[in-house]
Write a protein that binds this DNA or RNA. Sequence first.
DNA 1: ATCCCGAGGG
DNA 2: CCCTCTGGAT
Length: 218
Amino acid sequence: MLKKERFRRFIEYFTQHYPDPKTELHFSNPFELLAAVILSAQCTDKRINQISPALFARFPEPESLAAASVEEVFSYIRSVSYPNNKAKHLVGMAKAVMERFGGEIPATVEELQTLPGVGRKTAHVILSVVYNEPTMAVDTHVFRVSHRLGLAPLTATTPLAVEKALMAHVPKQYVPKAHHWLILHGRYICVARLPKCERCDLRDFCKYYEKNRINALV
DNA sequence: ATCCCGAGGG
DNA sequence: CCCTCTGGAT
């Protein structure tokens, strides 16, 4: 199947079944989303949503978080992965936002990536979710599912290479949606271990299914 | 044992 | 490129 046809099938299927996909992280403003995404690294959204209400109640904006001690922030996030690093990142992010951006979350990839704890993936999530900009954040799900469905070549061995492959073929108006589609599919159907191919409607053109159809049917 | 919407540092 | 961080669910 031609690559163009793969993307067409991918977009057609999800447009029909998930017309308005959204992040599962709970937030009510860009600051909360940024904090939640920083915390979400190597951690489930469900866990982040369990601890974020208390965190956001105590630190409702960058100003209070910037003034907080790393130890106090740690006490709110101790149950997420890498709490030491993330507590430092959150306080450092808030201080940088106060000192360099007047308390407002910046709106460009370059500026976002200067914030502690914010890499390319996190920056793109903010731009995509808050501003609906056509940027493709490549996380573990996007990376894995893109390869399996043949949306990115196996020679794309880095997140940046997968990002470029996707951006080359996903129409701009679908980029923010495609990001969430790949995550939802990766989280619930196309999981890392023993993907649920019997529940996947895209298996007829899936490279992973084609190669592993015996195991996948067990 | 493996994975979860990674980033920073060497 | 590699390694570290290192909680919780399955």
